[in-house]
Amino acid sequence: MSTEELLLDVRALRKYFPVRKGLLQRTVAQVKAVDGVDLAVRTGETLGLVGESGCGKTTTGRAILRLTEPTSGEILYRGRDSTGDPDQAMTDVVTATPEQMKLLRRDMQIIFQDPYSSLNPRMTVAEIVAEPLQIQGLMTRSEREARAVELLGAVGLSPDHARRYPHEFSGGQRQRIGIARALALRPKLVVADEPVSALDVSIQAQVINLLQDLQEQFGLTYLFIAHDLSVVKHISNRVAVMYLGKIVELAGTRELFGNPKHPYTEALMSAVPVADPDFKVERILLEGDVPSPVNPPSGCHFHPRCRYAKDICKVEVPAYRAVGQDHFASCHRADELSLYGLKSS
């Protein structure tokens, strides 16, 4: 793969949250929410980032946009030069100055999970959608309003919604408003953080279809963060699986689901209930809960719940390495295990 295809290249990203205790609020421990994540996002693709609660997927997304300051690591983003061609050198988001950051925000936007708390109830829909333009000092007031109406049309809302307030809308419609706001600056990269998990089933489908249409229409690149494997499989070109602050496996969607190389991916897939009473999978029941990221297990973080664990897994951290064509996993036994994947029909 030539590096020009990369829109975003995240290297060794870490985000630790201090645990403070006592009168002096001394730091007694670190929650290693994101603990060395490498992730490359290609221009125009949808990269799914999947994992259970507490695995660090949301923190990863927020750290990439510097909505939360990374503890360490690099987040290289390929901007555009004045002629609109991709820049040769990539900009490190982590060390960007406030001025650079403001420009970068035109390119990188986010859609939040909760359509209720992410919209200001005192602003009209038009104001919400046009706010990014206002902050960036783009366009005149009336141009911004016209742009807001145009964006509402693009996400399937009508122009007369523009003067209303968020409380007048259902969850699905609010999520459309959030999407319109994310698109206001014509970004290249959109981090979608659980964009449909707060919505009812029938509304989820509307929003997923909308996201796919908008991607085609505006040439967007998505980092799609979700816990729902079925949704991630449906929308993603490639999928990364996260566990306790680390990426444990990454591959093209078909490859990952058909030929998983990490035991956690296998277990996660087998746990998903499938809407077909005759669809038989071998259920691999994982014992116990996800361990605490304050004090993760030694060696491979997954070993206490892994049914294939050997002695080496308890002591040595497995390297995140290529295990196939465009397929990466961190498992000592990736080459010898034959794991259960979904059969493609």
């Binding site: 489908a205 997923i208 079925s230 499989k233």
Partner: peptide, 25 residues
Amino acid sequence: RGLMGSIPSLADWGARRLTAIEGVV
């Protein structure tokens, strides 16, 4: 039928478009 068409399934492999139910409850 609409509900069943709106959920992506792990058992599906094709790039099927979800058949969303239009409108709201």
